[in-house]
Design a binder for these strands. Structure first.
Lengths: 343, 343
DNA sequence: GTTAGCACTCTTTTGCTATGAGTGCTAACC
DNA sequence: GGTTAGCACTCATAGCAAAAGAGTGCTAAC
């Protein structure tokens, strides 16, 4: 649906004013905000048509107009000025994500926290997916007479470690056996090939050694699972209280939603575009029906690997936050790529 | 201040009723809740005296009474029935904290999460303090041509690892040198002895090797810092919305307070008693002036090492939650002790 | 197509009047 | 002297009506 230029100008003004104030916008208010030489009556006519088209709505007869989700959508797709990011904001973001010698988890946790502070929204991010990763290296570090730490390194640079415990005292022959198993069965294996069936075959093939090796083998498999699982990093839950009225009764549900990693990683993985904006009910999740999500995906070595996003009320400041989220996400991607390739 | 038995009975009834309903309690309501054979007028007289003594207050003249912080304090110290925990609740708690082969961090994170769900409050816990810990073991695991992972194990069973990066390609002689330094300078050292001054002396004494060894040495020191730092585990922030009216305007500040680890670990470390209850303003932190904190300390090998607590509104159900927090904390202490000694 | 004007709608505010919960006080009672 | 019935008093709350105000939609004129 194409709108006339004037209608677009009016729609944009309504959206922007409402985003700023949270109050319904009337024709007179609009008149002073708009550099347009028509009367309020004309604006009223236009607004009535915009309402008929589904872009605006009235909370009640004697109130101004507020954008519908479709209104926001039209605004984001067609009207929003994509002004380039302020240099000072760029610097600020760069300072916010710079983190030397840190793990991907730490980098993303920091990024979420920073993004939340910067945008006054809740921020989420997912760690790189381990889908196409293989096992690059496995090491065993004894830490006690019967316990040791297994360290697993994947081809995507993820390092996971776990303490595991044997039923008998450790000795060098056991450790040697462990390394043999690792060399012959695990190295180079895609993470997702390590399922229960594989393990059972492996254990069966070990014969007499099976009993002592089981804790180690299963620890490796748990590590592989962990390395594959994308983790969700959260920041700024407290910001939900900032826009409490906008979320209405979904505020509690939204907070609760944020605790659960699984739906969030679904949400973020949902779109394959470079970046994406989901407005209100466009999100599949009921808990997000009063929220908008701005998300972007970061690449590691050019490969789309994870996402960073913010969750705010539908009257979130799209125009200025979208570029910020994108820029930050790109930076994080670069940082992660760099961290990975430095090894 | 000693109260008459009847006053105590009335105060207890007011506290319990208010905790349950959140509404001010009047003399007639009290009459039916109490198995006492006096008239409402007598109760009024008693309540007026309790108010004069500072244990009760009136939101306004025509309302019932609500407990003051002093009222809660008297209730907790003298009146609260310390009925033993229900067996079914015990089972529930035991199921909630059981976690095999997990790190202390994971155990405490799970415990916080579980406690929050169980009590409808926000829950916090601190990892064992590393104050008296020494370095028990340090290992180096190469993970790339120039990077390796350093694993540090303390006498208190804390395991920390960190990837570190050298400026030149790794070779076996460097690794050997590293182990020499570790053996001669780090093993057995108390964690808090590793400060910048020690490091500088150490680096100075290395002569020509200093340059290549610095990344490793400083990584070890960072790990020692990390191992010493108590971490704060959070659970159930969303529960703050549950008692939003009780927190009033401090709700946002409370949520924000929870994000910051430092003040929480101060809060929890504050009391040296076995367990402690802080009511409203008794907490030193302004953000907690409408909150009560129930906390207990867990022991590892009989040594007081960390804390678990819940933060709720002042009208929290002390009588039933205090035993729960204590029981859970004891269990976690046992679990951590066991985990530690299994190595 | 635009606009001035006006009637109309509906929320919000204000003021007023019950209503009722709950108190404090007094005087009588045991 | 403690207890209690009775009653006047206070004050939040609910309900209602009137007034104010914001904003609209429509019509008729430009």
């Amino acid at each position: 649906m194409e709108l006339s230029q004037r209608k677009e100008k009016i729609l944009a003004a309504v959206v922007e004013h409402y985003i700023k104030t949270g109050e319904p916008v009337g024709s007179k208010t609009l008149l002073s905000a708009l550099d347009i030489t028509v009367s309020s009556a004309t604006i009223r006519n236009e607004m009535a048509e915009l309402a008929a088209l589904g872009y605006l709505e009235q909370p009640h007869t004697s109130a101004g107009r507020i954008p519908t989700n479709e209104g926001y959508r039209y605004y984001v797709d067609n009207l929003m000025g994509v002004r380039p990011l302020d240099e000072s904001v760029k610097r600020q973001i760069e300072a916010g994500v710079s983190l030397k010698n840190a793990s991907p988890e730490a980098i993303l946790a920091k990024a979420s926290e920073f993004l939340a502070d910067m945008t006054d929204c809740a921020a989420v991010s997912t760690t790189p997916s381990g889908e196409n990763a293989t096992i690059k290296r496995i090491e065993f570090v004894p830490v006690g007479t019967r316990t040791g730490m297994i360290v697993l390194l994947t081809s995507t640079g993820v390092i996971k470690s776990k303490v595991c415990r044997s039923d008998v005292d450790l000795n060098s022959s056991m450790i040697e056996k462990f390394y043999n198993i690792v060399k012959s069965s695990f190295l180079g294996l895609p993470l997702d090939d390590i399922d229960t069936a594989t393990l059972q075959t492996l254990v069966a093939s070990m014969g007499a050694d099976a009993l002592t090796m089981i804790p180690f083998v299963s620890a490796v498999s748990e590590l592989a699972q962990e390395a594959m699982r994308t983790m969700v990093m959260l920041g700024g839950q407290s910001n939900i209280l900032r826009y409490r009225e906008d979320y209405g009764t979904t505020a509690y549900e939204l907070m609760d939603f944020l605790r659960r990693g699984e739906p969030i990683s679904q949400l973020l993985a949902n779109s394959k575009e470079d970046f994406d904006v989901k407005i209100g009910g466009e999100n599949k999740f009921k808990q997000l029906e009063n929220s908008s999500v701005i998300m972007a995906h970061y690449n590691i070595d050019g490969d789309n690997r994870g996402s960073i996003g913010i969750i705010g009320p539908t009257r979130i400041d799209y125009a200025s936050l979208i570029p910020s989220v994108r820029y930050l996400t790109d930076l994080v991607g670069e940082l992660l790529t760099q961290t990975l390739n430095e090894g």
